[in-house]
Design a protein around this nucleic acid. Structure first.
Lengths: 195, 195
DNA sequence: ACTCCTCTGTCTATCGATAGATAGCCGTTG
DNA sequence: CAACGGCTATCTATCGATAGACAGAGGAGT
């Protein structure tokens, strides 16, 4: 992968996370790294191609950042996801890329919608597996992801990260799902991860 | 309020809920009701003005639809919010208007961002009050709104309303984790409200 | 070593489409 | 008459995308 292409993807990701799919243009990206918009097409044939590439790279990075740790509990896994999103929200004030794209899913080119779908599928599967597997953990995984994504939406809309913290506070010490003694162990400092 | 203006707002609302702020244009709206795009400016001077008007009308309608019922419990209030969002999601496959706008908050004109913020403030305040008031109910209200908004994002991204049902199942009876038939129960028991 | 060829990355120039917005005219209606 | 609500016509800006040219790097063949 080219370095120019990488920088273009970085910029595109930043813009999408800030303002959605319509929040960036080839001209804008090109100007920001000092080339012409036509040159961007050399790296990515279409805008949809580029956005889809950004989305799947984002998925890879995110899932690598929240990767399963040895001896982790279900709460650890949830805390890790929470921390990852919070860090990104706090560091550059931007929310989950696929959260933005998912919200405007109805207006996305098919390949971008597909990449977005894949991100959530992978997250749900990963989270569910790390919480023990089974149908009830899938519902729990969906609830966790929903609360986190929604928490970011609230934080962005209200302009305060406190909204995210309060909205997702209950995830840190969740309703007991499987083993009651896991709650006591969950006090271990959640790792500071971020995609 | 003019009838043409109403119809324009209806269409704009539908488009925004489907594809975000960039998901509609004056030309598109005008064509759909059989007038010219220039005529839309007669009713709404700018696109931002229109979107802001749509957002605050949406807020009014939504809060009227989930209005406090006599003798309701905190769970009733939450169930009412849940049902309102679910109905809209189910009926026309579209999510909360302010959820979409909140996700792309970084790219919105100031007045639209403000209207979006106001919607969430009003919801949080209303929900919090109906759950007894106090700081801990505010956090709970934020959690409920986050889970609902995120649940809609997931349902849209994954293309299945089941994702919403499972993600928000724990809100219906907070302590209990999802039972398989809870989704169908939620469709009939609470009032069928929708903004 | 020298030439030829290909590939890469960028450029200029331009396309057609669409965006939001404006100015001014005109018919209907109260 | 005067206000309202729509129209025609047009502007400027920007969009994604394409065509074609050019410079440089590097390998292959002689």
């Amino acid at each position: 992968m080219n370095e120019t292409a990488e920088r273009l993807m970085d910029l595109a990701e930043s813009h999408i996370r800030n303002a959605g799919y319509g929040g960036f243009s080839f001209r804008e990206l090109a100007a920001e790294i000092g080339i012409k918009s036509a040159s961007v097409h050399h790296h990515f044939p279409t805008k949809a191609t580029m956005a889809a590439a950004v989305a799947s790279r984002y998925a890879d990075r995110f899932l690598a950042a929240v990767v399963h740790q040895p001896n982790e509990t279900a709460e650890d896994a949830v805390a890790m996801y929470r921390s990852a999103f919070r860090t990104a929200l706090d560091r550059d004030g931007r929310m989950c890329l696929c959260g933005v794209l998912g919200a405007e899913a109805g207006g996305l080119p098919p390949e971008v919608a597909k990449a977005t779908r894949t991100f959530f599928r992978r997250c749900i599967e990963d989270l569910s597996a790390r919480m023990g597997g089974g149908p009830e953990t899938k519902a729990r995984a969906l609830q966790v992801m929903a609360t986190l994504e929604g928490g970011m939406v609230l934080a962005r809309a209200l302009g305060s990260i406190d909204a995210f913290d309060q909205a997702t506070a209950s995830l840190a010490k969740p309703v007991e799902i499987s083993k009651p003694d896991e709650a006591s162990k969950a006090k271990t400092t959640p790792p500071e991860v971020c995609p």
